[in-house]
Design a binder for these strands. Structure first.
Length: 586
RNA sequence: GCGUUCGUAGCUCAGCUGGAUAGAGCGACGGACUUCGAAUCCGUAGGUCGGGGGUUCGACUCCCUCCGGACGCACCA
């Protein structure tokens, strides 16, 4: 469809250029030709508004549209297949439906490669996401980050980019020392195994218990600082405890990644790289990009970008967050020269990245322009922001567990345990589909409200709804394979796909690659998610309105089944991009 | 105070680089299972697109301003 659409746009633009030239106007103005979708399919498949040319051509838009329609009809042989019609100020095109349908059905043989493009071929993209702390388990906010990062990576790859996914684990700092201190006070040498707890949750519990410790010991905060100093000094006992607890935390977090289908090509640990960047700051100081303040700290002047100044090295010479990120970016580019480095980080850190990118630019790194902060909004609860201290954080594992339970109840209520094979596994996949879709369909940059009740619903615009359509089509195909229905005797004839519901499906199947490409260009999985829902919804209507396998006419049955298969290809590929498991039955 | 960002139906959100009567889902109300899976489909009700200016042939979309919310403006990460 894309090609046909683009061809029409080019044809219209060329004709407008002719008209402009005849009137002595600049033919280049024809670039203003824009393709749109008419509000009603009965008006045409593609529409071109003529308003922009009214002034230069000194003609009313309806007259221009009429003149264009005449000219384009006259050269029917050279123009793309289809017919044109002037509708008021618009020039509308009716595409040749049979050829678009044929194109849509070709997705069946392309299979998993349908929707792939080379729009980003040759480009190396590094994408950093998740970045967990090793003092507590993943929560809902991480799930949004993870699905955004993982899904963006998959979409970029689908568009031909070479992608490196990285995870920067925040495994050092005072907050880590707090959970260690708390464990020293209350742990008594116990292990996660002793309590039958998932290892990261075990560590997280001690982090929460630090609040109790603070009440009992007014010096708790100070002690955490002291512990950090000991850690930095390499105190063997401290390091040993730190290692043990980190293994628990990271191990548990990795299990959650496995559960959600998220993976990384490379892990970086802050404990190993937090000192990098110091050298870069020294170099910048020598070259005059930075300056030494009266108190001895090294700073950078940010007035050129409307900010004040930022400390890069404390007066005692120790580094801070910015110093580390500075060094890390430089090292990464040296390791793997990327064309694009994407940081998937919450929008709270806009300031940080604005400054980081500016400093790298000032240091003379040309690639600083290729850095991109994929900023996403917070996930809030109906009552407001999630707060660790108030215990309102929605834990990732528990959320998935409760969704799985609900899905399981649904399966049992419908008596589908046998049909589904493994009810537990199916329920888990439905839960994952529900969460990932919920998080992926939202526009990344916006804050979102996670309503537990609503997310527990599997009806309407949800992941399970889309999975359900996939299961229905799979069921049709199983029946076909068993010889049910008359499809086997029929012949696939694309021109039979002419009803409104069929055409809508054809249109959506054929425009799926465009959605993937746009999602890649904008780093926005929500575009794919919206397309998935549109396809699923259109299929549901089609399924309801038209007999497929049971259609009396063999050719029509075969063709409708072929369309269903094409829809299945789109659903499978799209769900894969969104980290939503596909289900043969549910 | 400054900066960023958001404000569309009761709720949660779409609305493509400004364009033809503002769209979904949930919730509410009313329908549709002897037929391919009802985790479905159909219908009804519900919006001065936060207020006000401006640019334009045309503004939910761009600019200004005011109101309201969120986030940020650490020698924390």
């Amino acid at each position: 469809m894309r090609s046909v659409r683009e061809a029409w746009k080019a044809a219209v633009a060329a004709t407008v250029a002719d008209m402009l030239a005849e009137k002595g106007a600049d033919p280049a103005l024809s670039e203003a030709v824009a393709a749109e979708a008419p509000p009603d399919a009965a008006m045409g498949d593609v529409g071109f508004p003529m308003f922009p040319f009214a002034k230069v051509l000194r003609m009313g838009p309806p007259q221009i549209a009429a003149a264009l329609a005449e000219r384009l009809s006259a050269k029917a042989g050279q123009a793309p297949a289809g017919t044109v019609k002037a509708v008021g100020p618009y020039l509308n095109v009716f595409l040749d439906r049979a050829s678009v349908a044929e194109q849509a059905l070709s997705s069946r043989s392309l299979g998993a490669s349908y929707g792939r493009s080379s729009s980003l071929a040759g480009s190396k993209v590094m994408i950093e996401f998740s970045s967990p702390n090793t003092n507590k388990p993943l929560h809902l906010g991480h799930l949004r980050n993870d699905v955004l990062g993982e899904s963006s990576a998959r979409i970029l790859r689908a568009n031909g980019a070479e992608v490196m996914k990285i995870n920067l684990v925040n495994d050092r700092g005072v907050h880590i020392c707090k959970s260690m201190l708390s464990y020293m006070a209350y742990g008594g040498g116990r292990t996660p195994e002793d309590e039958g707890k998932k290892t990261d949750h075990f560590v997280g519990d001690y982090y929460v218990k630090f609040n109790e410790l603070k009440k009992e010991d007014p010096r708790a905060e100070e002690k955490a600082q002291e512990l950090l100093v000991k850690w930095e000094a390499g105190d063997p006992e401290t390091i040993a405890l730190w290692k043990k607890m980190n293994e628990w935390a990271v191990g548990g977090i990795r299990r959650t990644y496995e559960r959600t289908g998220v993976s990384f090509d490379k892990y970086y640990y802050e404990s190993q790289i937090y000192l990098t960047g110091k050298d870069e700051v020294q170099k910048g100081l020598a070259s005059g990009v930075f300056f030494k303040a009266e108190d001895g700290s090294v700073r950078v002047d940010l007035t050129p970008i409307g900010l004040e100044e930022k400390v890069l090295l404390r007066k005692d010479g120790t580094s801070i967050y910015m110093t580390q990120d500075l060094g890390l970016a430089i090292h990464r580019h040296a390791d793997w020269p990327f064309d694009r480095l994407v940081y998937v980080v919450a929008n709270e850190q806009q300031y940080h990245f604005k400054v980081l990118f500016y400093i790298l630019k000032r240091l003379g790194y040309e690639w600083a322009d290729s850095l991109f902060h994929l900023s996403y909004g917070l996930v809030n609860l109906p009552e407001g922001r999630m707060k660790t201290r108030e215990g309102t954080v929605v834990d990732a594992d528990s959320l998935l567990d409760s969704l799985r339970e609900l899905a399981l109840e649904e399966i049992q209520a419908k008596g589908r345990e046998d049909a589904v094979g493994d009810p537990q596994d199916t329920a888990e996949k439905i839960a994952l589909g529900a969460v990932h879709y919920y998080l992926a369909q939202a526009t990344p940059s916006k804050d979102m409200i996670f309503n537990p009740k609503e997310s527990l619903s599997f009806n309407g615009d949800t992941g399970p709804y889309i999975q359900y359509m996939g299961a229905r089509i799979s069921s049709l195909l199983r029946k076909r394979d068993r010889g049910e229905g008359g499809a086997a005797k029929g012949e696939v004839r694309p021109e039979l796909l002419s009803s409104p519901t069929e055409w809508e499906l054809v249109r959506l199947v054929s425009s799926y690659p465009e959605a993937v490409e746009q999602a890649g260009a904008e780093y926005n999985p929500a575009i794919v998610a919206a397309h998935m829902y549109a396809v699923a919804s259109a299929f549901s209507k089609f399924y309801h309105d038209e007999p497929i396998l049971n259609c009396d006419e063999p050719d029509r049955a075969a063709t409708r089944l072929a369309l269903s298969e094409a829809v299945l290809v789109v659903l499978k590929n799209g769900l894969e991009l969104l980290c939503i498991p596909f289900l043969e039955a549910m």
